[in-house]
Design a protein around this nucleic acid. Structure first.
Lengths: 339, 339
DNA sequence: TTGAAAGCGCTAACAT
DNA sequence: ATGTTAGCGCTTTCAA
């Protein structure tokens, strides 16, 4: 493999000139530049990433940090990673995946000590996440995907839950729905202060009041029996409900079964909209579900470019972004039927 | 941050001695070793990954290479990536994710020229994959996840489709099922020679003959209408069918709806088993589905350790491994009912 | 068993 | 506008 030395020798200039020409870090006469570029091409020269990193103290690698604990829903998408990788590569960065053991702390400290990465994107932040403290201590640039309300001073990218709920309720209201149920995730995650659950909770009640909607919220866990019981009781409890907002894929399965089991039809009798769902998941059901889907491209695009801006010192201030969901109208929503 | 020099100075030995002591690359007297370790600890010394790489010509980074083309089902699991990362970290390697644009070739060549990675794990190999040729040309160690029958000379890890189909059919036969339908993926992917589709196809017919099963195979695409039509006709066509083997999540949704729509019950009237499904996916349905799930941990464990063995020159020969699926018995399979 | 020193292939400060 | 050269922080050969 050719090195920068070979290129310099071939053109008859110094290595620094080649380096500057290739990186555009200082003015080079047009003719020399051309010669250098040509020589580099002919020799199939390509700078060794590692050598460059050692000299420049910048690796052009960022890490995506997964916690060891189980993930919630929604963020469990492969698209998140591949999209992040794509965005990073678009900025000439590499993406490495770091998963932590449950013990975590020492592991992360060792990882950071290697100084392999220029910055970090933190997934699934929880209340009082110790990782944040460590990252600040080590002073490595980072950005959070999903906010941690207990540390409102960090830069983050998150779903715009309020916007989503507002659009969702107003959309349903526009179709004549007044009795709307919201199926959230488990009560436990609410008590744990898990962001998606608490934010949608607040937003739902806020906008029900605002839009004059008779709304009711249900928490529902993941286990088969829990779902079955929850759905059964909820279906009985409010027979006037004409539309369901669901942020819980497992409950969705049960809800659809429950509704059709009662001889009701979607969307003729009952409307269903899935929110904060991952792209395409809702189209898996029959009928395909109308949904407010996370805009993963936008989220990752924002996350990566803000992180890189931080790394390159372009702006160090606090930067937060709330990304609206995308409404995908499919076949699970209709006009409210008078019953 | 402390460097190796600081440690050497503190102990009063040469840097090489410190290096050897830390890496165990050459015998060091016990007392010195202890002193060095202690000093390193006190100074919070940790070797810089980049410096180490430059000197040793080994980066301890491997890349997972995704194609730009759309993915099939099954391999679209986030677990694949996080598992791969975990396995890699267990061997003190980092995992970077590379996604290619559709143009791909130059991009991959440039990526490889950077010499950032020691080895590559290739996902979603297709017939006559140009990437294989390039990797061989550049002479970087690699391993394939999912085989490419047109290049049977490469090392790979894949699902053991034959074993899976054999166990599946024998399992159903043991419950008295003799009329079994197999819902495969699309005819197009079959014609394209997509491994999972062709291998299960062969295996199904082979074992039906062997086990004296009256089996019939259906190909089924992904679009809503296709699925609906396919399921409708298949449900009518063979009323004697008492069990379905399905390797197609979308068809699964349709099939369940179709079956319940006819007033039939799972598993009392009809048995259903999902094969080559990703972990947990089958438990999303109601009833939770009995399934032969890919053993992602085993697959990635094997892939990573074989790749690293290659990198470290421990064995360079062709190594192939077929990983059996794991049978998860849930609630969609029962005894064949005499109808 | 240990040390000295030559790289690894670049970047960037310092000269000119 | 270009060249010289000192690192970057390690590993590893060569010598002792």
């Amino acid at each position: 493999m050719a090195t920068i030395k070979d290129v310099a020798a071939k053109v008859g200039v110094s290595v620094s000139t080649v380096s500057y020409a290739l990186n555009g870090t200082r003015p080079i006469s047009a003719e020399k530049k051309e010669l250098i570029l040509k020589a580099a091409q002919e020799l199939h020269y390509s700078p060794r990433a590692i050598a460059r990193s050692l000299a420049s103290k910048r690796t052009h690698i960022i890490a995506m940090l997964f916690p060891a604990v189980e993930r919630g829903l929604g963020l469990s998408e492969i698209d998140l990673i591949t999209r992040a990788a794509k965005e990073a590569m678009g900025h000439a960065y590499h993406l490495v995946i770091w998963t932590l053991q449950t013990s975590g702390e020492n592991e992360l400290r060792e990882l950071l000590a290697q100084e392999l990465v220029d910055g970090i994107i933190l997934m699934e932040v929880h209340k009082h996440d110790w990782r944040i403290a460590m990252l600040k201590e080590v002073d490595v640039p980072f950005i959070i995907l999903g906010r941690d309300d207990s540390a409102p001073t960090e830069s983050y990218i998150d779903v715009d839950f309020f916007d989503t709920m507002m659009r969702c309720i107003s959309y349903l209201k526009g179709l004549g729905h007044v009795h709307i149920d919201f199926i959230n995730q488990s009560e436990k995650s609410f008590n744990d202060g898990y962001g998606p659950v608490t934010h949608t909770h607040e937003a739902f009640h806020y906008f029900c009041a605002n839009f004059d909607i008779n709304g009711k919220e249900y928490f529902c866990g993941w286990e088969n029996e829990t779902v079955r019981d929850c759905i059964a009781s909820l279906l009985d409890e409010r027979s006037e409900t004409s539309a369901y907002i669901v942020m819980n894929d497992k409950a969705l399965t049960g809800l659809i079964a429950g509704i059709t089991g009662k001889g009701l039809h979607i969307p003729e009798d009952i409307s269903l909209v899935s929110i904060i769902s991952s792209a395409g998941a809702a189209s898996f059901f029959l009928p395909a579900l109308t949904a407010f889907e996370m805009d993963i491209n936008a989220m990752m695009g924002a996350a990566i470019s803000q992180l890189i801006a931080k790394i390159e010192g372009r702006y160090a201030e606090l930067s937060t972004r709330l990304i609206p969901c995308i409404l995908r109208e499919r076949n699970s929503v209709g006009k409210a039927r008078v019953r």
